[in-house]
Structures are given as structure tokens and as C-alpha cells.
Amino acid sequence: MSTTATSTTQYSIISDFKEITKMRLAISVVFSSMAGYLLGVETVDYTTLALLAFGGYFMVGASNAFNQIIEKDLDALMDRTKNRPVAAGRMSVNTAFAIASIFTILGIVILYIINPQTAMFGAISIFLYACVYTPLKTKTPLSVFVGAIPGAIPFMLGWVAATNDFGIEPGTLFAIQFFWQFPHFWAIGWFLYDDYKKGGFFMLPTRKKDKGTATQTIIYTVWTVLASLIPAFGFTGKLYITPVSAVIVGLLGLGLLYFAFQLYKKLTTQAAKTLMLASVSYITLLQIVYVLDKFIR
């Protein structure tokens, strides 16, 4: 075999591994969980932080691998997913299942080393994503509600990893990322509507790209912004942001709300794409502001 062929094969294996575990998504989840940890901890333990990063990555990787096994035939129908390793036939179901199983075990064990509650929430996340959310995607738009639960766990998971406690603080972090899932995923469901339709997925609340969906997107965007501002009022225990940070978060929220209204006004694919990008920017910047607020004040 030539050197070029060998390097191509190695590249294929690496790229397939990235695809089966959805590396970019996994990294964003790790970022959320690390932000939650920094918010909850009094003294940063870098060993725990590293365990959380690896455990979180394995947790997301396992969920996505199981998802791609279950949806392999449907993935093959959609342009966005037809080149995934299992759907394209480059990786066998058995290999993908082995990866998913190993990642599940590694993820739960690593999170258990941090503390049992962290491992429990990690296990719940994998179960809900693979066994409830994934099968429901072809049945009902309510799948987005179910999927928002494991999607909201990482931010909260970091706090639980730091404190070994579930209370109002991680509950608030969960609420923020839970409500945020709706404008984020409905924006994705809007601009990928035709592709999703090929696979039999109807992710939008009205099953249509209409004002009803856009209205619900606005409503959940408002809930996202309100939940994000709650820590400024002293109701959330040790989770607190200063008035300056609250103003910054509020401005970020107004920006997100602006793009949600633009979707309602225009009802276009481009408006949905812009909202999706705005939602990613919002949650990332919010987590950065929360962490900086804690360590600067």
C-alpha cells in the first residue's frame, strides 16, 4: 500500500471517529460542564476538571454513537448525515456499538470518580438521549422537549461535580440551558426542514415553517433570557451575578430576542440560520460572563 493510501486510511479513521462522537458538539458540552464546575467550586481542582472534561466527552460520544446506530437508515436519506460512518457503510454497527458501549462505561466510571451524583446525571443523559429522544424524533415534535433535558444537563453537571450537591444553583443552570435548547433547535429544524423531512423528522412545534413556530420560538427565547437573569436577584443561593454582568447578559438576551423576532418577521431559511448562530454565541458568552463575574468581583 502506498504512503498516500495509508495516510488517507488513517485520516478516514480519525475523521470517522470525530463524526461518530460528534467532536465539535462534544467539545461545546465539555465547555458548558467546565463553566458549571468553575461556578460551583471554591478552589479549582485541576484533576477533577480534567476528569470532568474526559467524562463529559465520553458521555456525549456514547450518546451520539448510539444515535447514529439507531438512525443509520434514516441518516442515509438526508444530505446532512448520509456521509456519517455507519450510514455510509464505512463503519459496521458492531464497531459503532463497541465504541458507544466503551464510551458509556468510561464516561460513567470517570464521572463516578468525581462523585456518584455526577455519574448518575451522566447516565441519565445518555439514556434519555439514546433511548427516549432518538426514537421520538420521527414520532412527535415533543422530542425536542425530551432532548432538551439531556441537552441541559452539562452546565448543571459541572456544578454537581464541584459540590456533590443538587440544589437551586445547578437547577438554575439547568433551566437556562433547557429553555435555550428550544430557539436553538427550532432554528436548526427550520433551516434544515427539507433535509429532515427526507428522514421523516419533524422537529418544529407546528411541523411547519410558519408564524406559529416562530411565535413559540420567541416565547422560549424570552424564558431563556429571564432564566439567565434570575441569579442577579439573589434567589439562587451561591449562584449570583453582579448588576454589571446582569446588564451584559440582558443585552445579549435582547440581541437573541431580536433575531427571534426577525425569524417571525421574515420566515426565511437565512433568518433561521442567523438565529441559530446567535443562540450559540449567546450561551457561550453567557457562560463566559458568569465565570468571569465570579472570579473578578
Rank of each mutant, 00 (worst) to 15 (best):
S7A: 14
I13N: 11
I14W: 05
S15L: 08
S15M: 14
D16H: 02
D16P: 12
K18H: 10
K18S: 11
T21H: 07
K22Y: 11
I27H: 00
S28M: 15
V29W: 13
S32H: 03
M34E: 05
V41M: 00
E42V: 03
E42D: 05
D45C: 09
D45K: 08
D45F: 12
D45E: 08
T47N: 11
T47P: 05
T48H: 14
L49M: 11
A50C: 15
L52W: 00
L52I: 03
A53M: 06
G56H: 03
V60P: 10
G61Q: 05
S63L: 00
S63M: 02
N64L: 15
F66N: 06
I69S: 09
E71C: 08
L74K: 04
L74N: 14
D75T: 04
R80M: 04
R84F: 06
P85H: 07
A87C: 02
A88E: 08
A88D: 08
G89N: 08
V93A: 14
N94A: 15
A96E: 02
A96Q: 09
A98W: 15
A100S: 11
S101F: 06
S101Y: 03
T104N: 11
I105K: 01
I108M: 09
V109D: 01
V109S: 12
Y112M: 07
I114S: 06
Q117G: 08
A119G: 01
A119P: 11
G122D: 03
I124C: 01
Y129M: 08
Y133Q: 10
P135R: 02
T138K: 15
K139A: 06
V144M: 10
F145Q: 13
G147R: 03
G151C: 07
I153W: 04
F155G: 03
M156L: 12
G158H: 01
G158S: 00
G158N: 02
V160Q: 05
A162G: 03
D165L: 14
G167H: 10
I168H: 11
I168C: 00
P170C: 03
T172F: 00
A175P: 11
I176N: 10
F178R: 08
Q181G: 01
Q181W: 03
F185E: 09
F191G: 07
D194Y: 07
D195A: 09
Y196A: 05
K197R: 13
T213I: 04
T213P: 07
T215Q: 13
Q216W: 08
I218G: 07
I219N: 00
V222A: 13
V225K: 05
L226W: 02
S228T: 10
P231H: 13
P231R: 13
A232S: 08
G234Q: 02
T236S: 05
T236F: 00
K238P: 10
K238Y: 12
L239Q: 00
Y240H: 09
I241D: 00
I241G: 12
T242S: 15
T242M: 13
T242Q: 15
P243E: 04
S245A: 15
A246L: 02
I248A: 01
I248K: 01
L252C: 04
L254F: 05
G255S: 11
L256P: 13
L256C: 09
L257H: 04
F261I: 08
Q262L: 15
Q262S: 12
K266V: 06
T268P: 12
T269Y: 06
T269W: 04
A271P: 14
A272Q: 03
L275A: 07
M276S: 13
S281G: 14
S281T: 15
S281E: 11
I283C: 08
Q287M: 13
K294I: 06
I296S: 07
